[in-house]
Amino acid sequence: MSDKPVPNPLAPVALNEAQTERLRRLYGEIRCLVCQNQSLADSAADLAVDLRHEVQLQIAQGSSDTQIKRWLVDRYGDFVLYRPPLQPSTALLWVGPFAALGAGALIWTIVQRRRKRAEAEVPGIGRGTAPSPSTGAPSPALASQANRLERARQLLSHPD
């Protein structure tokens, strides 16, 4: 017993050039359900042959791309399309990456803003670097320390 259906030669459908072009584009958007990683155009599966024939017939009969896709989706679900439509069940798929990007950007800005505020309130904390003499004006905290040191020195040098 071979695991192949009885061959059923399907009559070829005559299509003009524009229709053939449409056919090629459509095939690329439709997934073969038997070998899921192949498009309808590439698949040699028996069902793919039947479906290709059906799509050809429908194009010859003047169906629009949307009608043909609708026809397929009615039978095989959105899975048959490589580009699933935007609807509640696929919203996460479409919006997810942008939502993740947005969340990342939001967290980044919040962290940045907090860091800046912390730096403004307590100098030297935000970035964890001690103020060095080369950065110009000493910090008020350091200045008050210096003042006290100076006063102590004066007291020591002029003990009245």
């Binding site: 059923n8 399907l10 359900l33 069902l47 039947d50 679900g77």
Partner: peptide, 14 residues
């Protein structure tokens, strides 16, 4: 289903 059309209507793929 000699030509496989009914199977397609039922969404059969295997």
């Amino acid at each position: 289903d000699l030509d496989g059309k009914a199977a397609i209507d039922w969404g059969v793929y295997g």
